[in-house]
Amino acid sequence: MENKQFSGDHLDVLKELVNIAVGNATASIADLLQAFGRMHIPQITISDMEGLNRHIKNSIPEQQQNYVTKQLFGGVFSGEFIFVISDSSALNLGYHLYDADEPPSEGDILDAVIELTNILSATIISRLTEELNTKVQFFVPSTEIIAGNDLISPEDLLNYHQIIIISTQMEFEHQNINGQIFILTKDEMIESLKALIDQKLEELYS
């Protein structure tokens, strides 16, 4: 979808800021969870719900069973943070964080996924909003197990018009953990994000 509000400069700044935030997240995970890995350079696209649906379907295999954690964040820059991790990666994460001899329980796995999501969302979003000189409030995350890549319900497809999709992939090879991150903001956020980036640009070039 052609974006009439976001200029190339805006997108470049946002990409740079998200890059810094994602780098921060990798460091935090290494420090807090003793998991060393890397994150891919984030992709930023502006789309509608249909586009988001296509994007998710292209990013996540159809046959995969996933733990999907969604966490809302509010403030001048608000939206939804989604972390998708396959069941095998989630199991490995459970083993890693609970380092039990026996396989981790379903509760352990869910809590481990929530914990990782906490760190990812807090680092990425907090750092991003910090760079943009604004504050953010996090809401309680919730996880559901979804078979396949149908993460967007048909009702949701009708609700939003424009969405900024920030997506990246994290890999912890040693622990064999992979996940997909989607940060979604809708309609009116584009304008406020644009204003925040404008301020940042002014700050940088003044």
Partner: peptide, 19 residues
């Protein structure tokens, strides 16, 4: 670990409440 994450990131952490 959760306390450490909270203090390190200055951000709330949560326990899973679904099970």
């Amino acid at each position: 670990r959760k306390i450490r994450t909270t203090l390190r990131l200055h951000s709330p952490t949560f326990y899973d409440a679904s099970l």
